[in-house]
């Protein structure tokens, strides 16, 4: 008869331990989720800057590339699609459909910019234009910044997803609605390498 209070105490203790354990896991997941969200915010800043630079670039190139209207329009269209996709991604960073959409739009934009720069190789006047030179330096740098912040974001997403999938925390992820996050991948093979926008 003396054993029953002890059993109850032990059970209570175990329950308390279990609750503390769940709280720990929960907090860890929240911390990792915030880390990748913050990493995405860094990408977003650079993407915005890039979307701001592209119209200037097109405007400068227009004067020299009057016969290449199609290429220029493709760049502007791709830029607009990517800009609107980035708004969606910024609202829900890590959401699979938003990230895939942005990744696709960025790939298209990268491709059309690549064509524009390849084209401008044939126009020495354009290449020598100082506005064009400084714009392409800025664009190259922004491109790199997107790349480096994308690295940080993808690392953070990987840490979060791993923590989410490993055994004890995998039990609570669905209960507390920790959705899997999506990597930011820019699919096109030529996009893997940084854009060659050097005019030097």
């Amino acid at each position: 008869m003396t054993s029953s209070p002890i059993i109850i105490l032990v059970l209570l203790g175990l329950l308390l331990l279990a609750v503390i354990f769940v709280i720990e896991l929960y907090n860890k997941l929240v911390k990792l989720r915030n880390r990748f969200k913050n990493a995405y915010a860094q990408i977003d800043v650079q993407l915005k800057r890039r979307y701001d630079l592209i119209p200037n670039l097109v405007e400068t190139a227009k004067a020299y590339l009057s016969h290449e209207r199609g290429t220029l329009e493709a760049v502007v269209a791709a830029r607009n699609t990517a800009a609107s996709a980035s708004v969606g991604a910024a609202a829900t960073p890590g959401d699979p459909s938003a990230m895939k959409k942005l990744g696709g739009a960025e790939s298209l934009l990268g491709g059309s910019l690549g064509r524009l720069f390849a084209l401008s190789e044939a126009y020495p006047d354009l290449k020598a234009n100082t506005t064009m030179l400084s714009l392409s330096e800025e664009l190259a740098s922004t491109e790199n910044k997107v790349g480096f912040s994308r690295q940080a974001y993808n690392d953070a997403v990987m840490l979060y997803n791993t923590q989410r999938e490993v055994f004890p925390s995998s039990l609570i992820t669905s209960a507390f609605n920790f959705a899997a996050a999506e990597l930011f991948v820019i699919e096109q093979a030529e996009q893997r390498e940084p854009q060659k926008v050097s005019f030097a």
């Binding site: 860094q42 650079q46 030179l133 400084s134 330096e137 800025e138 190259a140 740098s141 790199n144 910044k145 480096f148 912040s149 690295q151 940080a152």
Partner: peptide, 21 residues
């Protein structure tokens, strides 16, 4: 600065600041 070398330097430092956190 509008000097191309100096701009490049500033940009590269910014890039590395992002990469290094």
């Amino acid at each position: 600065s509008v000097n191309p070398d100096e701009r490049k330097l500033r940009n590269v430092v910014e890039e590395m600041a992002i990469a290094a956190g």
